[in-house]
Design a protein around this nucleic acid. Structure first.
Length: 344
DNA sequence: TAGTCGTGGTT
DNA sequence: TAACCAAGACT
């Protein structure tokens, strides 16, 4: 190898090497985190963790992940479980399409006799997009896949001085990220990049003096690294109103299951009509406010005598087993608090 | 490609 | 308080 080529290779690997050294010394504890040199983690564990971690913080995921693994230690067990059991276990975690895809993916993997081991094949499984397929390929199978989440995109944008919004710079960031990905320790490198973005190269107030990449970072060189990349413009959230029926009899409340697709798809719920723009005319026994990603909601709860729609009686003292998403858990809590106040 | 899809913590 | 943000996927 010519000396110049060798020098170029070292230059290319240098940031990754420094990043890995920093990671070895500072890594946060993650569900599948193991000491350096350990055998690769169980693909089932990596897959479940990564799906849970989509748009969800590590702190939120940790206890939920433990419950899932305890209840379903293997993917065969998960694939054999009832849909409702899995959706209930997911209740409160949000983005319920993930749980529906989790079910479909588990059954497909079992049908195939195990996880595919390449990024491109993983990509074909339900719920595994660009990020998650690459993460599993790198972490569970050691493939030199380039893993890009919002953390990595921000790190790359700053390192290379890209100040356009991420949506515009997406293709450039991928090329640059692929150029930095080292051939070895694929999983550790992927986690090191994400960890750097989460703990040092933060969106606001990045801790550049402690960053192992600061010496060549173009954003740091400008003196205002937090300006990279440009913030994305987001639309204002409209406000909606909804109505939910409180139908109580003999210490139980009538619950229904929402349609399989769409908002809160497949989840347990209080019955009620579709939500709209106008506040319903009935006087509500309680009203709760809830924020979704793209709108806010006032849910008005009104008492009603007779059950309607297909559903079941859920005993109030076992309401925590109903698998209610947070919106309806808040509604139930509001009604029970009100009842307690009236009784006092 | 831009909209849909949750929730809770941080600032 | 309101905005911002999180190990994104899907249509």
């Amino acid at each position: 190898m010519p000396a110049s080529a060798a020098t170029q290779l070292i230059d290319k690997l240098q940031p990754a090497t420094r990043l890995l050294a920093h990671y070895d010394a500072n890594a946060r504890a993650l569900p599948w985190r193991r000491p350096p040199g350990s055998p690769p983690p169980d693909p089932y564990v990596v897959w479940l963790s990564e799906v849970m971690l989509q748009q969800t913080t590590v702190a939120t995921v940790k206890p939920r992940f433990r419950r899932f693994i305890q209840r379903w230690p293997t993917i065969e067990g998960l694939a054999a479980a009832e849909d409702e059991a899995i959706l209930s276990e997911w209740a409160g975690l949000g983005y319920y399409a993930r749980a529906r895809n989790l079910i479909a993916c588990a059954r497909e993997v079992v049908r195939r006799g195990g996880f595919p081991q390449t990024e491109s094949e993983l990509r074909s499984l339900p719920g595994l997009g660009e990020y998650t397929a690459a993460a599993i390929a790198a972490i569970a199978f050691g493939e030199q896949a380039t893993v890009i989440d919002t953390n990595v995109a921000r790190v790359i944008a700053r390192y290379h001085g890209i100040d356009r919004p991420l949506v515009e710079a997406r293709a450039d960031i991928r090329v640059l990220a692929e150029g930095m990905t080292p051939p070895d320790r694929a999983g550790d490198y992927a986690q090191a990049m994400m960890d750097l973005g989460a703990t040092i190269c933060r969106p606001k107030q990045p801790d550049c003096p402690n960053c192992p990449l600061s010496s060549e970072c173009q954003a740091w060189a400008t003196g205002s690294p937090e300006r990279f990349p440009a913030p994305k413009v987001k639309a204002a959230r409209p406000h909606r109103h909804g109505l939910a029926w409180w139908i109580e009899r003999d210490g139980a409340v009538w619950l229904v299951r929402r349609p399989a697709k769409g908002l809160l798809g497949g989840m347990a719920a209080l019955p009620g009509p579709e939500w709209g723009e106008e506040s319903p005319p009935q006087p509500a026994a309680a009203t709760i406010s809830h924020g979704f990603t793209h709108f806010t909601l006032d849910l008005h709860i009104v008492s009603k005598a007779e059950p309607l729609a297909e559903g079941w009686w859920q005993p109030i003292d076992r309401m925590n087993e109903a698998g209610l998403p947070t919106l309806y858990a808040k509604a139930v809590q509001a009604m029970l608090s009100r009842k307690e106040a009236l009784a006092a």
